Amino acid sequence: MKKEDLVLPAPRESAAPAGGAGEPLLVVEGLTKHFPVKGGFPIRRTVGQVQAVDGIDLTVHVGESFGLVGESGCGKSTTGRLITRLLEPTAGTITYQGKDITHAGRKELAPVRSEIQMIFQDPYSSLNPRQTVGKIISGPMEINGIDPAGGREKRVRELLEIVGLNPEHYNRFPHEFSGGQRQRIGVARALALEPKLIVADEPVSALDVSIQAQVVNLLQQVQRDLGIAFVFIAHDLAVVRHFSQRVAVMYLGKIIEVGDRASIYSRPRHPYTHALLSAVPEARVTDGDGARRERIRLAGDVPSPISPPSGCRFRTRCWKAQDKCAAEEPPLVRITGNHEGHLTACHFPEEPTTEGRGEDIVLDPALAALEEAGE
């Protein structure tokens, strides 16, 4: 394995400025998804609602990479599935290229589905074990009636080469590949229809750290070459920082902070964002005087999405919570000291005195050790 395959490149400057400049590709407003909770015997009835996603707004511009981070269960994956219309929204609107697709029918969605693709989290369960690689990648083209010049087989072999696999793997089955290779097959399948937007749902979380870097390098190269916009969902803050131009932080179904990469990582305003950044394992993150930053340990557990707290949903674990936090839900707005496009939902935000902290967030220590050893 080559060293350049292990190291993530330096973050690129945003092609779409943080202020929202550029042409919007996807606009989500008030997006909500509640799952019914059934109970009772012998007659089962709805006794509650899991508020997985509860009124979020976001915009993705043409060719932009938009990161979505947060704890497990905060609604990130559900948001991705709503955007791709794999789930039906409970409320809100999804506008793609100026067209409302929130409740579009099968025929109306047909042309849109080819332009919005998804890379799934698990490279082992997202591929049909009974189909060859050629069949898996050519399947979307067959379903959409697309016959590229030279035939589908030629196109599949080209895609395999684009994602760094041998075109001769065309007739192999998924079980003959490693996890990283399977994820590359998933990327090739997503690229088969030449999409304009890809929702990548934690595409590297199930992979070894060295393979993670290879897949992220691949996705960045694909974005540079093809100009595809990404919604990149992940837990790993270092990977999100390297890949995404803008970042949104989710907590319990709500977006609580959003802004450009430099602003979010260097000058976070929401207490939860501070806690996330402080929790990066073994990250070389220091205060301005060179001392290591202290880990912020949140008290209590994440509340149930069936019955979330009133007002600010983070208040039950927040060290700055006051009576106002329980009475009023903070709006997602620009607050004093924020850069343009940096929005925060907090009544008592942190002071922007953490300049440069996010710059030192690094990859997994095992990957850093490989880099330092020159392997």
Results as ranks from 00 to 15, higher is better:
Phe314Asn: 13
Ile255Gly: 03
His175Phe: 14
Val258Gln: 01
Cys325Gln: 06
Val53Glu: 06
Lys33Arg: 15
Ala200Leu: 00
Ser138Lys: 07
Gln117Arg: 11
Ile228Lys: 11
Asp225Gly: 03
Asp225Thr: 08
Glu153Cys: 07
Gly356Ala: 13
Phe314Glu: 13
Pro365Ser: 07
Ser263Ala: 15
Gly75Val: 01
Arg292Thr: 14
Val37Ser: 04
Arg297Ala: 05
Tyr265Phe: 15
Ser310Glu: 08
Leu87Asn: 14
Val69Met: 08
Ala10Arg: 10
Met118Trp: 09
Gln181Trp: 04
Leu197Ile: 13
Gly259Thr: 04
Pro195Thr: 12
Val333Asp: 03
Gly290Phe: 12
Gly290Tyr: 09
Phe41Cys: 00
Glu115Lys: 15
Leu26Val: 11
Pro11Thr: 08
Val239Glu: 00
Val37Pro: 00
Gly80Trp: 01
Ile185Thr: 04
Pro331Asp: 00
Ala110His: 11
Gly19Asn: 15
Val199His: 07
Gly180Trp: 00
Thr46Val: 15
Lys38Ser: 11
Ser125Trp: 04
Glu355Cys: 03
Ser77His: 07
Gly341Asp: 02
Ile233Met: 11
Thr102Phe: 00
Arg81Leu: 13
Gly253Pro: 05
Thr273Cys: 02
Lys324Ser: 03
Thr336Trp: 03
Ser65Met: 05
Glu355Gln: 14
Met141Lys: 05
Arg12Gly: 14
Glu257Gln: 09
Glu142Gly: 09
Asp100Gln: 07
Pro111Asn: 02
Lys99Asn: 11
Leu367Asp: 00
Asp147Pro: 02
Gly337His: 09
Val7Glu: 15
Glu194Ser: 13
Met141Tyr: 05
Glu176Gln: 15
Asp57Ser: 01
Ala15Leu: 15
Leu165Gly: 09
Thr354Glu: 12
Arg241Ala: 05
Ala369Lys: 15
Val285Lys: 11
Glu372Tyr: 04
Ala234Ile: 04
Ala234Trp: 03
Leu26Asn: 14
Glu355Trp: 08
Leu219Ser: 06
Val333His: 06
Lys324Cys: 01
Lys196Trp: 02
Phe41Val: 13
Ala104Val: 00
Gly40Asn: 10
His235Phe: 06
Val222Gln: 12
Leu363Tyr: 05
Val187Gly: 12
Val187Asn: 12
Val27Phe: 02
Gln181Ile: 07
Glu202Gln: 10
Ile335Asp: 01
